[in-house]
Amino acid sequence: MLQNLTFQAKRENLPQMLAQIAAEISKYVKNEIWFNRLKLCAEEILVNIIDYSGSEKLYISCEFVESENALRFEFADEGTPYNPLENDTDIDIDAEMDARNIGGLGIFLYTTIMDKLDYNYKDGKNILTAIKFLSEGDEDGCAIK
């Protein structure tokens, strides 16, 4: 369990943040594609916070919720109140290359991969919660463990 790991909100600290998150994910997620997807989601959320929140610090929590058989991530910052989920998170992945917008890929990825996302502003903090339900191995691409 990671509880309120605190970092300076800087891109140069990303590798350190991701190493700790990856170590936690790897305890529960054995499928390497899903391991990578969840690490990717964490990065995309963190980069949004670093680039746009204006917060000096950010806080990371990650826990396995046994009752729901789920991994629950929480990302918090003390920046300007901002709900990233209010953005248009969809991109047309079938669009022609020239029509592809170079931005928006990160939020598209984490809203696509995660099962549940929730935003709250509480006690001066933006708090984004992301949940992925874990499943036993199967062939349809959603195997996690």
Partner: peptide
């Protein structure tokens, strides 16, 4: 496959 997955998800 892990890297290809990311390229595929984004189209």
């Amino acid at each position: 496959p892990v890297i290809l997955d990311v390229f595929k998800m984004t189209g």
